[in-house]
Design a protein around this nucleic acid. Sequence first.
DNA 1: GTCTATAACGGGATAGAC
DNA 2: GTCTATCCCGTTATAGAC
Lengths: 232, 232
Amino acid sequence: MLESTLETAQRDDTATRIIDAAERLFIRDGTEATSLRAVTREAGVNVAAIHYYFGSRDELLRSVLDRIIKPLNVRRLALLNQSLDAHHGRPLSVHEILRAFLLPDLELIETLRDRGVEIAHFAARSYAAPSPALKPLIEEQFSEWSTRFMDELARALPRVDREELAFRFRCIIGVIVRLLGAATPRGVAGGLDTTEILPTLERLVAFIAPGLSAPKPTRPAPPRSRARIIKE
Amino acid sequence: MLESTLETAQRDDTATRIIDAAERLFIRDGTEATSLRAVTREAGVNVAAIHYYFGSRDELLRSVLDRIIKPLNVRRLALLNQSLDAHHGRPLSVHEILRAFLLPDLELIETLRDRGVEIAHFAARSYAAPSPALKPLIEEQFSEWSTRFMDELARALPRVDREELAFRFRCIIGVIVRLLGAATPRGVAGGLDTTEILPTLERLVAFIAPGLSAPKPTRPAPPRSRARIIKE
DNA sequence: GTCTATAACGGGATAGAC
DNA sequence: GTCTATCCCGTTATAGAC
C-alpha cells in the first residue's frame, strides 16, 4: 500500500521524474529553499517542462505533498475500519483507536528508513508551518479523517465532555507532528531502534491514553495561588 | 518582565526601529517571505543600515527570535525556582512542574492578545521548522532549561524510567508547540477565551500529567496482533 | 512534447560619498 | 552614522524554434 505511492514509481515519464526529483529536494533542502531550476537539474529535464506538466511551482509542491500524505491518511482510516469490523461495529477502546491513528506514521519511518525519516520531517514541517500554497491542501486532508477519529473517540469515552475531547485531540496532533519532526534514523523521537515500531507505538499509546480519558480538570487554582504564581 | 523585552522598547534609535519592524514582518509574513527591503520600508530606514547594525539578514533574524524566546525561558525557570523555594527545595509535584513549564506561553498570548497570537505562531514555526540560521539558537536556548525541567520531573517521578521520561518530555514539547501554533485570538487551541488562561493551564496539566506518571507500557502486542494490524 | 533563450523582476550585500 | 547607487546573483515564467 505505501509502496505504490511512496517509492519511486516504475514509470519513467517526464512528469514522474519531475515529481520524484522535486520530492527529493523539497525533503532535503526544504520547500522555500528549493528552486525550480534545482528540480530540473535533479530531474534531468528542462525548466519549461515543469510549467508544461504542473503549471506552476505551487502546483508542483501540492502534488508532492499530496502524494506523501494521502496514503498515510488512507491507511489510518483503513486501520480504523478494520478494527471496527473485528468488533462488529461496537465501540473501540481508546488504545485501539490510538493505534490506528499513530501506526501509519511509524510504518512510514520503518519502511523507508533514512528516506522515511526525511519524509517525516517534511510532513512535520508542512503541518506545523504550511506555506500559503499548502494550507488548503493540509486542511482538506486533515478534515477528512480527523472527524472520523473524533467521533470514534467520543464513542469510546462517552463520559468525557466532547469539547474537552476536541481540545485533547488537538494536543495529540502536536505529539504526532513532534514525533515526525524529531524522528532520527536510529529511532523515533530518539534512542529507539526504528525496526521496532510496535514498542514505540505502545509507548505513545501509554502516554496519550491516560490523559485522553482523564476527568475534566477541577476548578482552576484559587486566586491567591494565581497571584503567587504570576507575580514576581 | 515580559513587557521589558516584548513590547516595543521606548528607545527609538535606529537599531530598535529595525528590529521592531523586522519582528512585525517576520511574524506577519513569515521569515522566508520577508525581504530586507520590506524591513527597511517598514522601519523607515535605509538598506545599508541593517547591514551596519546587524551585519547580515541571518543575524537580524536571530536577534528577533532571541528577543521573543529568551524571556519566555527566563520566566519558566523563575517560576520553577519560585515553586522550589516555596517547597524549601523538596520535590515538586508533576502538576506544579507542568504549570511552571506551560504558564509563560499562555501569559504571552494573554498579555499581548492578537499580537501575542502572532508571536506564538512565529515561535511555533521557528521550533517546528527552524531555518538553518535559527537552528543553533533554538537548540542552545532549549538545552538551557530543558535539562532543569527533566531533572525536576525525574525527582517528582522516581518510579518512572528516566529514558521513558525523556521520551514523554519530547511529546510534551509537541503539545506546547502545537498549542502555540494553533492559538487563535479567541482562545488557545480553539474555543476558549484567552483572558482565562488559568482554566486552560489546568486543562493542559490535566491532559499531560496522567500520561507522564503512567507505568511503562507492557510488552508490545503479541505477534498475531501485529500481523492482523499491519497486513491488509 | 521538448528545448533554448530571454524577459522581468527582486533578492542580499557593498563601495563610497556625505 | 546615514544615505545613494550599484553589483551580482538567482528566481519564476514565457515566447518561440525544433
